[in-house]
Design a protein around this nucleic acid. Structure first.
Lengths: 225, 225
DNA sequence: ACCTGAACACCGTTCAAGT
DNA sequence: ACCTGAACACCGTTCAAGT
């Protein structure tokens, strides 16, 4: 039933469910995830809150549906032409995921808090698997490396948007404040580099380069068949 | 003011604020993060909800305080004797963080959604920095690699607890269900390995090994001074 | 200084009732 | 089949009032 709805939406038939998810995503984009209440979504969809329940089982299901919509956009954005270099394919997927997280800041945090396994999410993972298989990594290692890479990419996006990385800029304040410098010897040694502002785009690319080398290292551990 | 309270608590003086945070963490451990309401925390602390506000500015501040308490336990658990091998130090820190996330499943998701920069969190980062400096990585690269590693470790713990990794077990169901196998060519090739249950402890260790090699690779790019 | 009671403007969800 | 109104048991937070 729900599957038919999702498959229907893939063929361009805009269902009631899709209208509800669109309303919820618009509210999250404009006013944050906390503003997404059943009542607010309903008002935007031009209906009462209780009218949502036949289309989304619960608020949790609504949040899962929002994530599902995002994943649906991911493989399209990456749009990897077959036969492309696996390095470029992985880079494109990683950049597409980060771009999506920038456009929808609520998404990165959400992805860690629910097991959202929509068909679209599986399709994106399949592209990941294909690129890793191309790299020459042993098949038995592919699922693990996909999880390693996707965990990093999603975690990076979530850290940027959630503010975890913001801590870097405040290190100086803390260091000069409550904590004596003797308690933070490594910070003292790194002071010169901690005071420079960080280029998050460049850092993401540098990380992806190092992770590509990690993959090549795993591939080299065992000669390809 | 707040700093005096935190420093006080480090010296064993149990403040009112600490009692409140203890109550909140106990509720989160027992009944999940959603059960942590101001009213529930107050009841457990033997007081009305409004009496909390002089001690924690808001519910958001209460959540930050809970994370702060967790970070306070992190460096102690790792308890790195000076002069220990940097590889062992990083492994210990990673394992301590994951153990903490297992004991308090609500924490991993929370850490990505707020910029919690308590003195204790900075202390933990300092240990990370120190180990990376020991590895021979250029100082300019240390902050980036600390973020790369901590993002992975926290993301891994959050994925385990939040259910994101659970998707692996369900891949079969999806594959046999709504999606035609032709749309998931890489899943088809990997079927043999996707059907085996995953040992998450072993996978975490394998990931840490690969990341250690990544660090050694960065260190080797430029000869140490 | 610290706590309380009542109140305000919200939540997610159920259920009987309408058409 | 689809939607509504009223209701239930909650939220976080403010504020005047108590001691």
């Amino acid at each position: 039933m729900r599957n038919r709805t999702e498959e229907g939406s893939r063929r361009g038939e805009t269902s009631r469910r899709d209208e509800i998810l669109d309303a919820a995503m618009a509210i999250a984009d404009e006013r944050g995830l906390d503003a997404v209440s059943m009542r607010a979504v309903a008002e935007r969809a031009g209906v009462t809150a209780m009218a949502l329940y036949p289309h989304v089982r619960s608020k949790a299901a609504l949040l899962d549906g929002m994530l599902g919509r995002l994943f649906a956009q991911l493989p399209l954005q990456a749009a990897a032409p077959a036969g492309q270099d696996w390095r470029q394919q992985l880079r494109d997927l990683a950049h597409a995921a980060r771009r999506l997280a920038h456009r929808h800041p609520w998404a990165a945090g959400l992805v860690f808090s629910r097991a959202s396994i929509t068909p679209d999410a599986v399709r994106a993972v399949d592209q990941f698997y294909a690129a890793l298989l191309d790299s020459g990594v042993p098949a038995a290692e592919v699922p693990r490396l996909e999880r390693l890479l996707s965990t990093f990419v999603l975690g990076y996006a979530a850290s940027e948007k959630g503010g975890r990385f913001g801590a870097a800029d405040i290190n100086r304040r803390i260091r000069g404040g409550t904590l004596p410098a003797t308690e933070l010897p490594a910070h003292a040694l790194l002071a010169r580099w901690l005071e420079e502002p960080v280029d998050w785009d460049a850092e993401f690319d540098a990380d992806l380069d190092d992770l590509r080398r990690l993959i090549e290292g795993v591939a080299a551990r065992q000669p390809p068949a």
